Simulated scan of single mutants.
Amino acid sequence: MKKIYGSAAEALDGLMFDGMTIAAGGFGLCGIPELLIAAIRDIGTKDLTVASNNAGVDDFGLGVLLQTRRVKKMISSYVGENAEFMRQYLAGELGLEFNPQGTLAERMRAGGAGIPGFYTKTGVGTVIADGKEHKDFPTGPEGAAETYIMEKGIFADLAIVKAWKADATGNAIFRKTARNFNPPAAMCGRVCVLEVEEIVPTGSLDPDHIHLPGIYVHRLIQGDHEKRIEQRTISEG
């Protein structure tokens, strides 16, 4: 099976349609699939639902899809670095489903494992629990009942993720904290497109070091990345 494509646009060919759901890896600007995001912007697909920890910043990452009004709804944990995100949400122009970070990661992982829903205590008694099924389980001290809420697994039409290196079959390694949401995002996509800094020969990666098995990856590109710094902090000389 051919997995390597020449560009982000080629790798997305035939996959995009209006109203689709996309799971995107990354945390802030760390480990984001910036080449694939830019290609989605250029393709012009609209009314997207995007599941991602956040929406980048105003002029980079997923922020470019907000600027061009491609996104209808975000499923996110944190939105504090994007002024356009805030403006669209407060103006009623953008749907937003807030998730605790662990819940969002587990919703992606559950979707990738074929699990349609799961119970968690996180969010019980808050607005996160509004409209969700509540159920008691004997998990407290001496079997006391504790309340859980039902969260649904995320089954995305497309996953876009970024890794450090991969072989030609898609076995991938992430570098340090850039792993973040990328593995669960990759798992929950019906089709997963992976961008990497380096493609290495198949068999050259230590199997014990692989973070994402190639079985989850359908298409693969190599490219140059800007790796912009989201918050630059320096000390005085």
Rank of each mutant, 00 (worst) to 15 (best):
E142C: 14
G223P: 08
K3Q: 07
K3T: 02
E146L: 01
P184N: 08
P183M: 13
E230G: 14
S52A: 15
F60D: 05
L66A: 05
K73A: 06
G102N: 14
E142I: 02
H225V: 10
I43R: 15
L35V: 04
Q67A: 14
A145H: 00
L36Y: 06
K46C: 12
K162G: 01
V217L: 09
A105D: 12
P201K: 09
A186T: 07
A144T: 04
R69S: 07
A110H: 08
F27Y: 13
I221F: 06
K2L: 14
D42I: 00
R87F: 04
T139W: 03
Y148R: 07
L158S: 04
L12N: 07
G170S: 08
G117T: 02
A163N: 10
G19W: 09
W164M: 14
N99Y: 15
F118P: 02
E146W: 00
E10F: 00
P33H: 05
D13V: 04
I221K: 02
A110F: 09
K72Y: 00
E195S: 08
R219C: 10
G102W: 01
Y78N: 14
I115M: 15
S77G: 15
P201F: 14
A185L: 02
K176Q: 13
F137G: 09
I210C: 10
E93P: 01
D42F: 00
A113R: 15
Q88D: 11
A178E: 15
I215L: 14
V193W: 10
F181N: 09
D206I: 14
I37G: 06
L65D: 05
N171D: 14
I234M: 12
Q231S: 12
L12F: 02
G31K: 04
N180D: 15
W164F: 13
A172Q: 05
F181I: 01
F85I: 02
A185F: 03
Y148F: 11
G112Y: 10
P184T: 09
G125F: 07
G102F: 02
E151V: 06
Y5T: 03
K3L: 07
H211C: 12
I234V: 15
A8I: 04
E197G: 15
L94T: 05
E226C: 12
I22E: 09
I75Q: 05
E93H: 08
A8S: 08
T120I: 09
E198W: 08
P184C: 07
A145W: 02
F60Q: 07
D206A: 15
K152M: 14
A55R: 01
D59A: 12
A178H: 08
H225N: 08
D224L: 14
L66F: 04
E84R: 13
T21H: 09
E195I: 13
V57G: 06
N99A: 11
L15G: 09
G6L: 02
E151T: 00
E197N: 14
L62G: 11
L96D: 04
A39C: 00
V200M: 12
Y216L: 13
R228Q: 13
E230V: 08
A163D: 05
S52D: 07
A159N: 04
L62V: 10
R107E: 09
K3Y: 10
E97D: 11
I75W: 06
E146K: 03
M74W: 07
V193D: 11
E93F: 07
I234Y: 09
T169M: 12
P33E: 06
A185R: 02
T147L: 03
G140A: 06
K73V: 05
P183I: 05
D59S: 12
